[in-house]
Design a protein around this nucleic acid. Structure first.
Length: 640
RNA sequence: GCUGUUGUAGCGUAGUGGUAGCGCAACGCCUUGGUAAGGCGUAGGUCGUGGGUUCAAUUCCCACCAACAGCACCA
């Protein structure tokens, strides 16, 4: 037992028997049993000398069990309500589960409450669970006879040594590995169906599209309510909503996937851009700018034309000589080929390396319409891009320097931690196997050399290079992949970059592609959601509003605003004929960090009544002292 | 791109086969009020776009565009 005690039972006793021998309460609460660390059904006979733990609702593992059973419940309800619907798979996911069905008629949002009601009914019926083991061929034939072609396919593909188990909940049954709760009644009512979606069979767009129903499930209705509350909170942070509310940007039909930055949004954008510019300059990068339109020849040479042609914006011009003088240019989807062109100007020596070329490169990619999402996934964006041309020997040190820079930037921008993944060679790729072996090994070595923990993300590298991915965690626990460094042997070769080595021979430089925030557009979306629009002072588009109580204070308020602007504090004046309550409410909702209230008293004394966003307290501060305080707080972290 | 849903004033929304309401914002007047919505009034819409059905379409049908959710994609 978990507490170290030993219990003796008769041969063939099950988890349920053990629970019952401990107490009636536990017997009732038992959901499953953990035998030697492995989850099993309660009725599973326990082997000799086993470590046994009874799993109840309170156990950590309970949620997984409940969710998996709820997925089965969903499938059962759907098949009862919509006969002829085929079941496929229904795994657990974060916070819930889904189940994919094959059915000609689509499910509609109106179906969800009906299905949910049926699920509750099945819980109330408290159908007992029964596990059976089948011969593979029998099972395949059985499911084919039922018209369950997907299930039959799954059984055929099971590993040869795997037992074919079929679980019954009442009469309804499904192929499943288990384990399951002893009856449908144990599932409880802490579940809710959340959305319907199309999803491809086996995740492949070439296959048939199934209909997926998503749900969430918890220990009880209280936990469910808390989860739904969390969803609502996340919705409030949505950068599209806040972007509108705070008048930061908009997107419209005539420029799909591109951002119209409003003055306030652009202020935020420039603040971030200028901050990064200072950081890379201090890290010995040289900033450059490369052309937006480049002849297709260069993209053919780099390999982009072959791999990404459908996703590139193309510009065609007639140079006046008829058909033969047509020139095809691509709007750059990446900056790397441009940077190689700069590198290739003039002969480079090993003494020039490492050469770090940085660019706030505006790139355009024709993203599929379904991929677009606010300012997070757009067709026109700017990367904080840079390419480091270096020698083999410099890889580890350059990686170390980059990770140090990135850590600093994330921290200063308000993110405390990130995780690292090593994305290895994808199926579709350029270069030779030797180059890939070499590049993956080199990145691995760099991680080890600088003591950077990482997990492997197999097959997720780019077509020319393996990469390290840096994933941020935001204020409400969501992950965002932003930074990357890619170790590329392919492009320098394809674009024929070389330098003169110490021994006088010509050699290929290694190229490190790297970005810290990735797309500025996307990163600002992340920043908005991370801070819920309540930015630290240095990032806030409007840092202070001077609001008057009476007209008599107008001249003083104007004077205060002028003084603050002189000190580079982004300040607005609110002289409107409104009550102070109204102004406080409005500027608080607009998430203005500092509200500076000026009435008759303040005007006479040369002070302001200061209210910091998020606080209901006010403090009267002399103008001079206030300016000092605001300037200190508004200083970007790298200049403080 | 695929599946489903949606598209009404700057924003948030109601509604109907007989050409549209509400709230906030805007504008005007009254009010000068001390920390989260003061009062009264005015203006603003070819109901996403294009076809069709109908005496009549914002409403019903079709196509397209866009947004949203998920899938696929993300150099």
């Amino acid at each position: 037992m978990p507490d170290g005690s030993v219990r003796t039972t008769t041969r063939g006793s099950s988890g349920a028997d053990v629970a019952a021998s401990i107490g009636a309460g536990l017997a009732k609460a038992a959901l499953a049993v953990k035998v030697n660390g492995e989850m099993k059904d309660l009725d599973w006979p326990i082997p000799h000398d086993a470590k046994v733990e009874i799993v109840t609702r309170k156990s950590e593992e309970a949620l997984d069990l409940i969710r998996h059973d709820t997925a089965h419940l969903l499938a059962q309800a759907v098949q009862e309500l919509f006969p002829g619907t085929q079941v496929t798979i229904g795994p657990n996911i974060e916070d819930g589960f889904f189940y994919d069905f094959a059915r000609n008629e689509p499910f509609t949002p109106d179906d969800l409450p009906k299905i949910e009601a049926k699920m509750r009914e099945l819980v109330a019926r408290d159908l007992p669970t029964k596990r059976t083991v089948w011969k593979r061929d029998d099972a395949v034939k059985h499911f084919l006879d039922l018209g369950e072609q997907y299930k039959a396919e799954i059984i055929r593909d099971l590993p040869a040594d795997e037992e074919v188990r079929v679980y019954y909940h009442g009469d309804w049954h499904d192929l499943c590995r288990g384990p399951h709760l002893p009856s449908t009644g144990k599932i409880g009512l802490g579940f809710k169906l959340t959305k319907i979606a199309g999803a491809y069979w086996r995740g492949d767009a070439k296959n048939a599209q199934l209909q997926r129903i998503y749900g969430t499930a918890w220990r009880d209705e209280k936990e469910l309510a808390a989860y739904l509350q969390r969803l609502e909170e996340a919705e409030k942070r949505d950068h599209r909503k806040i972007g509108k509310e705070m008048d930061l940007f908009h997107i419209q039909e005539e420029a799909v996937g591109q951002v119209f930055w409003h003055p306030k949004g652009w202020t935020l954008y420039r603040t971030v851009e200028n901050y990064i510019r200072r950081k890379v300059e201090r890290a010995d990068y040289r900033e450059v700018k490369t052309p937006q339109l480049i002849d297709r020849k260069l993209w053919e040479q780099s390999g982009h034309w072959e791999n990404y042609r459908p996703n590139m914006f193309i510009a065609e011009v007639d140079e006046g000589g008829g058909e033969h003088a047509r020139r095809v240019l691509a709007v750059k989807p990446m900056n790397c080929p441009g940077h190689v062109q700069i590198f290739k100007q003039g002969l480079k020596s090993y003494r020039d390396l490492p050469l770090r070329l940085a660019e706030f490169g505006a790139c355009h990619r024709y993203e599929p319409s379904g991929a677009l999402h606010g300012i997070m996934r757009v067709r026109s964006f700017v990367q904080d891009d840079a390419h480091i041309f270096c020698t083999e020997d410099q890889i580890v040190d350059e990686t170390r320097r980059f990770v140090a820079l990135l850590t600093e930037v994330y921290k200063e921008l308000g993110f405390d931690s990130f995780i690292t993944k090593l994305a290895t060679r994808p199926e579709l790729r350029g270069g030779t196997e030797e180059q890939w072996d070499h590049a993956e090994k080199a990145l691995e070595n760099a991680c080890k050399a600088i003591g950077l923990p990482y997990s492997v993300n197999p097959g997720e590298g780019t077509f020319y290079a393996p990469k390290l991915e840096f994933v941020l965690r935001d204020a409400i626990g969501r992950d965002w992949q932003c930074g990357t460094i890619q170790l590329d042997y392919v492009l320098p070769e394809r674009l024929d970059a070389e330098y003169i080595a110490e021994d006088g021979t010509r050699k290929r430089p290694v190229m490190l592609h790297r970005a810290i925030v990735g797309s500025l557009e996307r990163f600002i979306g992340v920043l908005i959601e991370h801070h819920a629009g309540k930015f630290p002072l240095w990032l806030a588009p409007t840092q202070a509003v001077v609001a008057t109580i009476v007209n008599d204070a107008d001249p003083y308020a104007k004077k205060v605003t002028a003084a603050l602007k002189l000190a580079s504090i982004r300040t607005e004046t609110d002289l409107r004929n409104e009550k102070i309550n109204y102004k406080v409410r409005e500027h608080s909702l607009a998430k203005v960090p500092y509200l500076l209230v000026a009435g008759r008293k303040e005007a006479e004394e040369g002070t302001l009544s200061v209210r910091r966003l998020g606080s209901e307290r006010q403090e009267t501060i002399a103008l001079d002292a206030l300016i000092k305080q605001l300037v200190a707080e508004a200083t970007p972290p790298d200049l403080a």
